[in-house]
């Protein structure tokens, strides 16, 4: 139906975005009593931290952006999106997008919540993922924070979705 426009190709974000894309308060998309702190590390195929990555998180009405630090670490504060904030049978989750030097196209993954076992079990997206790899999409409870590491490559490579 008139669809003949070739989309503009992607190129890497490169190493020098750090003064341009992060913005004040970028990692903190929510405040108040219900906030959840997410902490994680972005790792390459050798298990080395990726110090020049940029993560974006999106879900419900929230958008947040955080660059990784020298240890590849990132953090966000969010609230859990309500179930059914998207059509279809999906458990609460956040969309996570990864940009980095060395990524010619960005990566897309999802973060699910560990205290939603029943909903996660019914989630239509988790159910199309190889059961042995599903755990890479579910954050881990770690005291007061949720831990969500992203492995770009290797034995426990995070599940990424085609865009």
């Amino acid at each position: 139906m008139g669809e003949d426009q070739v989309p503009t190709p992607s190129q890497t974000v490169g190493p020098f975005f750090g003064y341009a894309l992060p913005f004040e308060g970028g990692p903190d998309s929510a405040g108040g009593a219900e906030v959840i702190r997410i902490e994680g590390q972005l790792l390459d195929g050798a298990g080395e931290p990726v110090p020049d990555g940029l993560l974006e998180l999106w879900g419900g009405q929230q958008f947040a952006r955080c660059r990784t630090d020298a240890e590849g670490a990132f953090h966000f504060t969010v609230t859990k999106p309500p179930p059914g904030s998207e059509p279809g049978d999906e458990a609460p989750h956040l969309h996570v997008t990864v940009f980095a030097r060395g990524l010619l196209r960005h990566l897309a993954t999802r973060m699910y919540f560990p205290d939603e076992e029943a909903a996660n079990g019914r989630d239509r997206v988790l159910n199309v993922v190889d059961p042995a790899r599903r755990h890479t999409l579910i954050a881990q409870s770690d005291g007061a924070v949720l831990r969500f590491d992203i492995r770009m490559q290797g034995d426990s490579e995070t599940v990424f979705f085609a865009l």
């Binding site: 070739v6 989309p7 190709p9 992607s10 190129q11 890497t12 390459d44 195929g45 050798a46 080395e48 990726v50 980095a100 030097r101 060395g102 990524l103 010619l104 196209r105 990566l107 997206v125 199309v128 993922v129 790899r133 770009m152 490559q153 290797g154 490579e157 995070t158 599940v159 990424f160 979705f161 085609a162």
Partner: peptide
């Protein structure tokens, strides 16, 4: 063919950072 692949060894940084598993298609 208009999109770059993730793995393009001429661009060295892709070697350790390109996912090697198939992307999950929804």
């Amino acid at each position: 063919d208009s999109e770059p692949p993730y793995l393009h060894p001429d661009y060295r940084a892709t070697v350790r950072r390109a996912p090697r598993r198939e992307l999950v298609r929804l």
